[in-house]
Design a protein around this nucleic acid. Structure first.
Lengths: 193, 193
DNA sequence: TGTACATCAGTGAACGCGCGTTCACTGATGTAC
DNA sequence: TGTACATCAGTGAACGCGCGTTCACTGATGTAC
């Protein structure tokens, strides 16, 4: 019935979402444009609305999908180190100068977090859902309240540290911030996971 | 020589900066507009360029000034509590639901942090300068490296905690995040200042 | 003191631009027969 | 198998809108004399 198979359309949709992830992270909600995203995806503007109803809908899908991928990658680290080193290992890679310098490809939460209070209900709900899921995993699936509490504090320090390091002008100060947060996580969260 | 005294012009300029602080924090860099800011200040668009060269210049001045005020208020708390309770006291007021709900009037860093990597060099330099000054004060003016390191980690947890709490949809999750960060600060940073 | 003039903070309409979105169209492919 | 037709993902020009910025103007005040 269709010119292309459903699979082809899904592939294009995914191409748009991946292009959007790059554009939104590097330029922000308002700085990223639909013409720009479509160009990055190797397409032209007009086709956009064959895939999404609006810029907001694309943002929501991009945000949820990219956030989930990034949390899943952190969770996967668990298999590669002794249990008590898991959180510090996550912090090592998250609070790394290479990640700091990779705004376009890095953590979508850090790139767009301060726009969340201004986002629509759907996007905020997706954000909360993914955060809760990741926090449960960090707390190792237990319902232990203090493990959950630690998991929140751990995430807060990682997020705040990366955002501050990305915001300051000098690389020296940025490194100082990353070092300080990695150290605090080693000191305070090593045995807790 | 002038129609009004220099003092009058300075007063108007300050009115614009204060209006800009509200508008930028609640709507973000792109969401806040010059017509909107001037209206909030009780003026009309056209006069804006008698005071600032561009939106970016206003942003820079607003950001530096508002950041400094907010850090100074945190520093002033030191006189009101025993030394070892200072950091937790700062955290109590920063990680408070009332502050979380006061985007328009609250911490300018939390409201705009993830736009910093995309800001111009001047703004990032101002951001760094104020952050360094505040960090020195948190570390109590010493050059003790570990006090500075703790001060960075402390700030990172506060910033990340507030931003996450503001981003999630449900108030319950938001409170959980704030509680967790306040608790972690009490547990890990109480004796260090 | 009184008056004519110069100043310039503030006004509000207008400008060009790029945005999100719409729309008439195209043309490669799947389907019907 | 071959062929005419229907489909619809993708194109690219166009739309209205609100933005940052400009500009000719106003009118209350300070200054000169």
């Amino acid at each position: 019935m269709a010119r292309y198979t459903a699979e082809h359309k899904d592939t294009t949709r995914e191409k748009i979402v991946r292009a959007a992830a790059k554009e939104f992270r590097s330029k922000g909600w308002a700085g990223a444009t639909i013409p720009g995203i479509m160009e990055t995806a190797g397409l032209t503007v007009g086709g956009f609305y064959k895939h999404f109803e609006s810029k907001a809908e694309l943002f929501e899908e991009m945000f949820g999908q990219t956030l989930r991928n990034s949390f899943d990658r952190a969770t996967a680290l668990k298999e590669q180190v002794p249990d008590q080193d898991w959180w510090p290992a996550v912090a090592e890679s998250y609070l790394d100068p290479a990640h700091r310098d990779n705004l376009r490809g890095g953590c979508v939460m850090a790139a767009l977090a301060s726009d969340m209070p201004r986002a629509d209900r759907e996007t905020r709900t997706v954000f909360e859902k993914e955060l809760l899921r990741y926090t449960d995993q960090l707390a190792d699936g237990t319902t232990d309240t203090s493990a959950h509490s630690d998991a929140w504090a751990f995430q807060a320090m990682m997020l705040g540290g990366l955002i501050m390091a990305r915001g300051v002008e000098s690389e020296q100060t940025a490194n100082e911030i990353l070092d300080a947060c990695r150290r605090a996580i080693r000191d305070h969260f090593q045995q807790e996971a």
